[in-house]
Every structure is written in structure tokens, then in C-alpha cells.
């Protein structure tokens, strides 16, 4: 198998994993919240860990959802200038944006790694005997994946620009 094939397989696997995880987490959220209401209404009791767990599920869903939004290029943005820019400039703008985004996402990943390291050293509040740093692993994981998707977008931008300029050259050298 070529490098490209391996890379494509890894990406497909990542997509399936994240999508599957999101479905699972969402179903868990609905079931757990409804179960808690049921227990409270009919047995006037509840699960001690359900509400804190629900809050982490919300966080995990949101962060993984943001990974999907990066993959699908569906992040909320103001693109007044991007909208008005001439067609030839647009790929360049795209490249600059993706470069900038990967940089910020990489720094965020680094900040998240520091945060989790501090949680390992000083953290507390275990939930269901799982220490807090594990619940917070979602931050470096999600920002890491977001960084990778922005880097992939850079690669795609460069390929697009290269194909454009080669087409431009062909057009220029033609009779």
C-alpha cells in the first residue's frame, strides 16, 4: 500500500471512530437524563454521579463535534472580505486562514497538555473513581485532532494552488 492509501485509511478510521463516539455519547446523554428524571419522579431518588457525568458528556460531545466541524469546514466565521474577494485570490486567502488556524489550534493543544499535566499532579474531584485528568483529556485530544484537520486543509490548499498555477502555465504557454 502506498503512503497515501494508508493515510486515507487512517482518516476513514478516525471519521468512523469520532462519528460513532458522538452517536454513543448523545444517546448516553438522552438516556441518562431521562433515567434521572424517571428515578426522581417515581422513586424520589437518583444517581449521585449522573449530573456531573452528564456535564462531562456535554463537554465531550461539543469538543468532538468541533472536530467534525473542522473536518467538514463548517465552523462559524465572518467572511465579509472572503465573500467579496476576487476568485483568483480566494485559494490564497484559504491557505493563510488554514495556516493561522493550525498555528492557534496547535498552541491550544499545547495549553491543554499543560492543563492536563497539572491535573495529573494536583487534580482531584474523581468522578466514578476516574480522576479528573482523564475526564479533561478531551481538551488535548480534540484540539490535537482539530490541528491535524487544519494541517490537512493546508495540504489540500497547496495542492489546489499548485494545480491552478500549472493550469495557468499551460494556458499561458499555449498558442
Amino acid at each position: 500500500m502506498s503512503h497515501r492509501q494508508v493515510a486515507r485509511q487512517i482518516l476513514t478510521f478516525e471519521k468512523r471512530l469520532i462519528d460513532g463516539l458522538l452517536c454513543l455519547l448523545l444517546v448516553a446523554m438522552i438516556v441518562l437524563a431521562c433515567l434521572q428524571i424517571g428515578l426522581r419522579t417515581f422513586f424520589s431518588s437518583g444517581l449521585l454521579w449522573a449530573d456531573p457525568l452528564l456535564r462531562y458528556l456535554v463537554l465531550w460531545c461539543g469538543m468532538l463535534g468541533a472536530v467534525v466541524a473542522t473536518r467538514e469546514k463548517k465552523h462559524i466565521a465572518i467572511d465579509v472580505v472572503g465573500y467579496l474577494a476576487p476568485e483568483q485570490v480566494k485559494p490564497w486567502i484559504g491557505l493563510v486562514i488554514d495556516l493561522f488556524s493550525s498555528l492557534v489550534a496547535a498552541v491550544l493543544t499545547w495549553a491543554a497538555v499543560i492543563f492536563v499535566r497539572n491535573e495529573v499532579l494536583f487534580g482531584s474531584y474523581p468522578l466514578l473513581t476516574v480522576p479528573s485528568w482523564i475526564w479533561n483529556l478531551i481538551f488535548p485530544t480534540a484540539f490535537g485532532l482539530i490541528t491535524i484537520h487544519f494541517l490537512l486543509a493546508i495540504a489540500a490548499d497547496i495542492r489546489l494552488l499548485a494545480s491552478q498555477s500549472s493550469r495557468g502555465n499551460e494556458a499561458g504557454s499555449g498558442p
Binding site: R40, S44, S45, G46, L47, L48, D51, P52, S124, Y125
Partner: peptide, 28 residues
Amino acid sequence: KKSKIWAPEGDPVSIAYLETLGITPLPL
């Protein structure tokens, strides 16, 4: 025991006390 009872989040002492009474508190 019939009432929905709050316990401070991260306070194992009062949570354990309420559980000893047979109450599952809601930590917030």
C-alpha cells in the same frame, strides 16, 4: 427522606451522612 435533598458538590462527609440516613442527595 421524601424530599429532594441537595449536598454540596465535592463534600464526601455530608454526602455519606445523608446516604447513611438512606437519602441520595443531588450534589450541586
